[in-house]
Each structure stands twice: as C-alpha cells, then as structure tokens.
Amino acid sequence: MMMLLILGILCVGFAVGYAFNFLLPKHQNEPIFSKKLFYPVLILGLIFSIMSLPFAATDAQKTKADPSSEQLLKDQKQLTTDISHLKADKEELTVSLEDATKEKEKLAKKLENITSEKETVKQHEKTIQALEEKIDKLASSNETLKRENKKSSSDTKSSTVQRSAPKDEGNSTGGHESQKETKKESAACNIKGSVNGIYHTPSSRYYSRTKNVTKMFCSVEEAERAGYRAPKQ
C-alpha cells in the first residue's frame, strides 16, 4: 500500500509540474498544453493517494500502537510466568496438605494406641491393687495362724506342766482362795479377750460390759501368754 501512495504522489507531482511548466511566461510560444495528459495523470495520482490513505492511517496507528503492544506482550508473558509459578506453588501446597493429612492420621492412630495402652495400664493397676489386697489379707491370716499355732502349742505345754506339777499347799487362806478362784475360772473357758488387748474374768468389773470380744480363754495364764493384760481397775 505504500507503493500506491508513492505512485499517487508521483502522479500528482508530475501533473502539477507539467501544469506549472506551461504556466511560465517563457513557454508561451511552445506547443499547447495537453489536457489529455494532465488530467488522467492527476486523477490517477489522486486515486492512488486516496486508496492508500486508509492503509497509511492503519499503518500509522499500528506504528503508534507498537510500543503499547510490546508492553502488552511483555505483560502477558509476565502473567503467564506468574501463573505457572502459582500453579507450581499450588501443587507444592497440595502435596504439603496431603502430607499433613497423612501425618494427622498417623498421630490420631498413635493417640488411639496410647489411649488403649493407658486403659490397659489402668486395668493392670487395678489387678495389682486387688492382688496386693489379697496378699495383705493372706499375710494377716498367716500371722493369725502363726499366733494361734503358738497359742495352741503354749496351751499344750501349759496343760502338760499343770498335769505334771504337784499341788501347792499355801500357808495363808488368801492364797488358797486365789488358787480356788483361778481353778474355778479355768474350769470353763469364760475369760473374755477384748480388742484392746485386755482380758476380763467373770469377777471383773467390766466383764458384762465387754462386747468386742476377739477370743475366749480358759485361764488367765493363757490370756497373758497370748499378749493380753488384766484391766487396771
């Protein structure tokens, strides 16, 4: 289209120069001005110029728009680069989120295992506590059996000694009475052994009041050997 513009300008210039050449005074005696050459060349030049003007304006606009177009292209490339970076960041974040989800599931499973182990430990503690209570009961029963064995063996020895020992003859009447009272008391196993470790004979002041009896004895000696004592009053 630039060629059309150039041809139009040349044609118009030729027609104008041709007319200007014949208008000069020194050419008045030369051949007559040819209208058949002037007008077609002028019209053809004008047509070429008019046809090329829109295209020239478009080219000018394109030329003016080129810097902005280049800037737009640069911006578009930058946006494309940013979008690719954002996509990469999105993929990394997605992977990180998946890893975090898996780690969360692992921690949840560990927490469940710890909770179950804690419950198992509590059950074991309860079992151990029950066993300790049973052991304490067995130990106390064992101690009781040992005491009863000692008491039975001591009772057996005392009965053997009483059978083999001669009868004592006291000089005073009080001695005979105490021996008679002891024999009467030992005739029946009616001596009360209280929880406080005190034994009460039927002649004792608190005999009828004593209700927390742990064991009955047949003699004072048996009660004392068992670790019981006489009341202070």
Rank of each mutant, 00 (worst) to 15 (best):
G170H: 07
E70C: 03
A19C: 05
D99Q: 12
K74D: 13
K109Q: 14
L4Q: 00
E185I: 07
N21M: 03
P54Y: 12
T182F: 06
Y207C: 00
L138Y: 09
K62D: 07
Q76V: 02
S69D: 06
K137W: 06
K137A: 11
D155A: 14
E117T: 09
T156E: 15
F48Q: 00
I43M: 11
L37P: 01
L86Y: 14
N212K: 09
T63I: 13
T115E: 13
A226W: 02
S159A: 15
K180Y: 04
E125G: 11
D66E: 15
F33E: 06
M216D: 10
F33W: 15
K102V: 13
M51W: 05
G170T: 06
A223N: 05
T94R: 09
E103L: 10
L42A: 15
E181P: 01
L23P: 03
V12M: 13
G17T: 08
S140R: 09
Y39H: 10
L93H: 12
C11V: 02
I128S: 01
Y228F: 13
N212E: 04
S152E: 10
D82R: 03
S194M: 07
D89L: 11
N196C: 00
K102I: 08
C218D: 11
T182H: 11
G13I: 06
L111I: 05
E224T: 13
T173G: 01
I47G: 04
I50R: 06
P202H: 08
E70N: 15
T173K: 08
A100W: 02
S52W: 03
R163F: 14
I135Y: 11
A57D: 04
E185C: 02
T144I: 12
K215Y: 00
Q76P: 02
S116W: 06
K122H: 09
F33N: 05
L93G: 03
N212M: 07
Y228Q: 04
S84G: 07
C189V: 04
V12E: 10
N149G: 15
L131M: 08
Q179F: 03
V161M: 10
V213R: 00
S203G: 08
